[in-house]
């Protein structure tokens, strides 16, 4: 019986992962296809990569997206850390319910609604104050910060509620004032969480199509917007090449993170073994 159950679990795992990975693998394989007609295999070639790297609008879109993502991630991490700290450490303040509501809503809010509402806000603002004169990088960044900070907040909040307060209390006990404790103890402890939050905000921003398309103006095309306009009408081999490059970068990043995690775990195990001796 137990054997049957674990066999069912293993099979579901294999099928699940096949479902998740087969499309990606095929995408990568076809990026090396010579033929312009995607499904037809015309022999191995790297011509689409050459074409990709020689395409100026791909480069400019990539640079714009990276810039927006970096600024978004940094500011969203600062705001998200503040918000996460506030929710986890200040049990009561006026508007707490509204605050936590506004934090958890963007996690599930359909992007079309967020995009539309922000666009209308920017237009209204321009009517009243004259700013923002043009929609583009600034408006996209503001929009991205708004939804990315919610994700950072959740990470920071769960780290803080998961850890006990004894370290902070020890610092108070040794005579540190609240602000000192915040900078000497709490923030260093939160660094891994902030790094995770930064990375998440960065990828969320890099990945966003819908909100960016709503709040961008002429002349500011992010990478997802560029990809979208190209694939709307069918398959494009150079997009396969682009996808392969992006997936490769992410895979290497995750691989490094995974190896670091495993090494950390090994070190901890080794340390525990030493303790036992």
């Amino acid at each position: 019986m137990i054997g049957k159950r674990s066999r069912f679990l293993t099979i579901s795992l294999i099928f699940g992962f096949a479902f998740l990975y087969v499309p990606i693998v095929l995408l990568v394989i076809y990026s090396f296809n010579y033929s312009k007609l995607l499904p037809v295999w015309g022999g191995f070639s790297t011509r689409w990569y050459v074409e990709l790297f020689n395409s100026p609008d791909v480069w400019s879109a990539t640079i714009l997206s990276l810039k927006i993502a970096a600024i978004t991630a940094t500011i969203a991490t600062v705001f998200g850390t503040m918000a996460g700290y506030a929710i986890a450490r200040f049990r009561k303040f006026r508007g707490r319910t509204l605050f936590t509501g506004m934090i958890s809503a963007p996690l599930v809010m359909p992007e079309v609604i967020t995009g539309l509402s922000l666009l209308l806000l920017f237009i209204t603002l321009k009517q009243i104050t004259g700013w923002p004169a043009n929609r583009g990088m600034t408006t996209i960044t503001i929009a991205h910060i708004t939804f990315a900070m919610a994700f950072v907040t959740i990470i920071i909040q769960s780290r803080l509620t998961g850890s006990d307060m004894s370290l902070e209390e020890a610092a108070y006990d040794l005579g540190a004032r609240p602000v000192r404790v915040l900078f000497d103890i709490t923030l260093p402890l939160l660094t891994p969480g902030m790094m995770a939050g930064w990375l998440l905000a960065f990828t969320l921003s890099l990945d966003d199509l819908i909100i960016a398309s709503f709040v961008s103006g002429p002349g500011s095309t992010t990478l997802p917007m560029l990809i979208y306009s190209r694939i709307r009408l069918g398959l494009k081999p150079d997009i396969n090449a682009l996808a392969t490059v992006l997936i490769g970068i992410v895979a290497i990043g995750v691989l490094i993170a995974g190896l670091l995690l495993i090494r950390q775990q090994r070190q901890r195990l080794a340390m525990e073994a030493q303790d036992r001796q």
Partner: peptide, 8 residues
Amino acid sequence: SSFLLRVY
């Protein structure tokens, strides 16, 4: 990895 490319 990119959501758009996975749909693609």
